[in-house]
């Protein structure tokens, strides 16, 4: 059993292991970074730390997120912060040691999912690049897409 933070980009339903998430906030005061990839939203001050925020929608090849009242930042834990969790095998994704996070259209519930309900990505089910997805879960009337965060923050790939 693992707990997942869920969130929406448009109508797409995404999930990320809750142990990977440091916090969720609605501070939308970004500092623009010129010359950065177009999905980089900018820099954010999180209690003295500078966090780089990217636009999840733009990152997976969609229209950029329009900031509204429900828009949120999902701030990820750094590798230092997840060191113990990764040693214990509770999570296995790395995102580097500089603060990073992304914006989503809105946040969903935290849900608990049995590991054996997670299946590998079915072909043709989604337009999102396969490497960004670590698995999918069939929900009652929705498909929960679990994100491969390591690949998402690997800005060297297109």
């Amino acid at each position: 059993m693992s707990q997942f933070t869920t969130f929406f980009v448009g109508e797409s339903f995404f999930g990320l292991n809750i142990l990977q998430v440091k916090e969720i906030n609605n501070n939308m005061k970004f500092t623009y970074v010129p010359d950065s990839p177009n999905y980089i939203k900018g820099l954010l001050n999180l209690r003295g730390q500078v966090i780089t925020i990217f636009d999840l929608a733009k990152r997976i090849g969609r229209e950029p997120i329009v900031i509204g009242t429900l828009t949120r930042n999902l701030i990820l834990k750094t590798d230092n912060e997840t060191l113990l969790l990764r040693e214990k095998g509770l999570i296995n994704k790395e995102v580097g040691n500089d603060g990073i996070g992304f914006i989503v259209d809105r946040i969903g519930d935290v849900i608990e999912i049995d590991d054996n309900r997670i299946s590998s990505t079915p072909a043709n089910l989604t337009t999102i690049a396969k490497e960004f997805i670590s698995g999918v879960v069939e929900m009652d009337n929705n498909l929960l897409i679990l994100l491969n965060i390591t690949e998402l923050v690997n800005f060297n790939t297109k």
């Binding site: 010129p34 500078v50 780089t52 040691n97 500089d98 800005f155």
Partner: peptide, 12 residues
């Protein structure tokens, strides 16, 4: 420092 994931940003 800037986030290493960003690589070198020109002029910054």
């Amino acid at each position: 420092p800037l986030n290493k994931l960003l690589g070198k940003i020109a002029d910054i």
